[in-house]
Design a protein around this nucleic acid. Structure first.
Lengths: 174, 174
DNA sequence: AAAAGATTGATCCATTTGGATTGATATGAC
DNA sequence: GTCATATCAATCCAAATGGATCAATCTTTT
């Protein structure tokens, strides 16, 4: 049996949906992470964080971690790396002394624009097998999954004591 | 702006498709990996490997790595862990002295059945926001993306000298 | 058939990861 | 107002990760 036959059989069985989306994201990450790390001397999480910081000036570390479901210390480190590279700056929150608000610098905005440009092209490349209409349908369905209550909180895989789950109720009641 | 508003804005912008599928898979992995590691004392890659080994008796390490796009040494280590736990055994290939063929033991098949059962339930939970018809559409579209030529080989993100890309031509000519 | 090159899987090792802890601040209970 | 509890972000540290190398084997070239 060839490799392609094996892949086809994996994608034909019980767990096909899980296998398929993992395959896509892991495969894409292998390509993307490597590129970002080699080109910009930062881990992918730093780029994700910079993206969130530029998009939401003054965002808190805690919020970044909910937009990109990663452990807390990952984000903490990403921010401190970005700060050391001069791409973001932190300010103590006036309202709450525990918090820091993070802002992108001009250099940060610049490099993010460049990186985002690559990502846009990568996205176009990755989704090129789909028509515009299909892309829309795919996105809408994915959005439904993400908005569901069980992405970060599982009943079947035990109580979640991780730092990932949060009180996100996107789509509750839909 | 609330967290949910921020998430909604991320999923409304340029890179929404990439953001969305990453969000789903990273979020799901956080839940799943934690559960597998805590319940079965093995990393998720070991369970993936065991899955492939049970499904394709005598599979080579190299092939597993192409079904689950992960670095070569990750699979090598996963197999040796599974072997030490008595879930798989390796045999020298008669045809090629470099290769080893891997087989699941009875214990391996047993524990895999248990794990697969959890995964099936997890999959049902994760995809529960979709109707049966929607699930099918989502899967078909995802399959198109996976079969495209640019998942593991990117033009826009540089030459791929990683060990991940391979001569998979699934869907070439489609 | 010898030499060069390619491929398989194990191992090496510097870096990254992430769960847990800590220190600082805020909130709630009494 | 004090004490107990909760939350935020940084740090600690054991374990995992992954690129690179290696030894063994197979293939191709000449």
């Amino acid at each position: 049996m060839t490799l392609d036959d094996k892949l086809a059989r994996v994608f034909a069985d019980d767990l096909r949906e899980l296998m398929m989306i993992s395959y896509i994201v892991l495969g894409n990450n292998a390509v993307t992470n490597r590129f970002i790390e080699r080109t910009y001397q930062m881990p992918v999480h730093a780029w994700s964080s910079l993206y969130a910081i530029a998009k939401f000036p003054g965002i808190r570390a805690k919020e970044i971690r909910m937009i990109f479901p990663r452990p807390q210390n990952t984000i903490s480190r990403a921010i401190s790396l970005l700060e050391s590279q001069g791409y973001v700056r932190q300010e103590a929150s006036a309202a709450d002394g525990r918090e820091k608000r993070v802002f992108a610098t001009l250099a940060g905005v610049d490099i993010l624009a460049e990186m985002t440009n690559y990502s846009r092209k990568r996205q176009a490349e990755l989704f090129s097998p789909l028509s515009e209409a299909e892309r829309q349908v795919f996105f809408d369905l994915a959005n439904k999954i993400a908005a569901g209550p069980h992405l970060l909180q599982s009943d079947v895989m035990g109580q979640d004591d991780s730092q990932i789950a949060h009180d996100n109720v996107r789509g509750a009641g839909n």
